[in-house]
């Protein structure tokens, strides 16, 4: 029972992070059909923001607020300089964003030096949940992530901008025909996804090893999420994160993490075959 509860909370931690990181990917993939391989670096930038603020004497919370801004800035520049010229060249976008990813990693290393960076969590200790005790910071992380996702959901469902975005995802020509500025919608949505990834990076920074190369793992994992859940929908994002995060957390008790990941990927590949339409939206299948 205790093990089950702990596993559940571990799974929730992982799922929330995956969903936050995956949001940007699913937006750029579903909205613009762009595969952004530099997405992991937004996570790294978020984590480094917290480290940097703390090293200047600032608090974790200040870092947590700066991180999404740093992510958004990086995303805005990437979209403006690179991606908007490559919307009709999917392979070009893949190659260029991979190049940017390497450049960003190396720049972080040049600026901050080699080695893992320490980030101090804002709170120490554990909370007593009756049945079990669980690290307080992780509980905070889960609540912040859940709140953010809820806010994103409301933003997409309830605001004019969200409506624009959903229209563009469903039918780009139609959106243009009714006068939505798709270019601007792309740019804003992209920067927004980067901001959320930056926030995710900040949230994991006290738990993870903060390294310039830390993004790659988040990139691969959140791609799993998109592969499993399909691109361009929040429901798919949550389904994918729950599948990947839940599966990984449960398996982590039985086998090594890398084997667990291998199994998750295998399951995702098999799912694609069994449910080609359910899990992979038609729009991105042939592009």
């Amino acid at each position: 029972m205790e093990v089950a509860a702990t596993t559940l909370l571990n799974a929730l931690t992982l799922i929330s992070i995956l969903a936050l990181v995956g949001l940007g990917l699913t937006i750029s993939f579903g909205l613009m059909n762009v595969t952004n391989l530099a997405h992991g670096e937004f996570v790294a930038i978020g984590a480094f923001s917290v480290y940097y603020i703390q090293s200047l004497g600032g608090s974790f919370w200040l870092g947590l607020m700066v991180a999404p801004l740093a992510g958004a800035a990086a995303g805005f520049i990437l979209e403006w300089l690179i991606l908007r010229h490559l919307y009709d060249r999917p392979v070009g976008a893949i190659l260029a964003t991979w190049g940017i990813s390497l450049i960003l990693q190396q720049s972080l290393e040049l600026i901050f030096g080699l080695g893992a960076k320490p980030v101090v969590p804002p709170v120490d200790g554990v909370s007593d949940l009756g049945l079990i005790t669980y690290p307080t910071y992780r509980l905070i992380l889960i609540s912040i992530a859940a709140t953010t996702l809820l806010a994103v959901l409301l933003l997409l469902r309830r605001t004019g901008f969200g409506l624009d975005i959903r229209t563009v995802i469903q039918n780009r020509e139609m959106a243009e025909a009714v006068g939505i500025n798709t270019r601007r919608a792309f740019a804003v949505a992209f920067a927004f996804g980067a901001a959320v990834a930056g926030l995710a990076g900040a949230l994991v920074s006290p738990l993870a090893t903060v390294l310039p190369q830390m993004g790659v793992n988040y990139l691969a994992n959140s791609f799993f999420v998109v592969i499993v859940g399909g691109a361009g929908s929040i429901t798919g994002l949550l389904a994918g994160s729950s599948f990947v995060g839940g599966f990984t957390s449960i398996l982590n008790y039985q086998i090594s993490p890398s084997l667990a990941q291998a199994l998750v990927l295998t399951a995702a590949i098999v799912l694609v075959r069994l449910r080609p339409n359910g899990f992979v939206p038609v729009g991105s299948r042939f592009s």
Binding site: P90, A220, V226, I227, A268, V272, V280, R285, S287
Partner: peptide
């Protein structure tokens, strides 16, 4: 399964 293009690329990356 009908997968081509970018999806194939990211699965192989993973």
């Amino acid at each position: 399964g009908g997968v081509r293009g970018s999806y194939f690329t990211i699965v192989t990356l993973a």
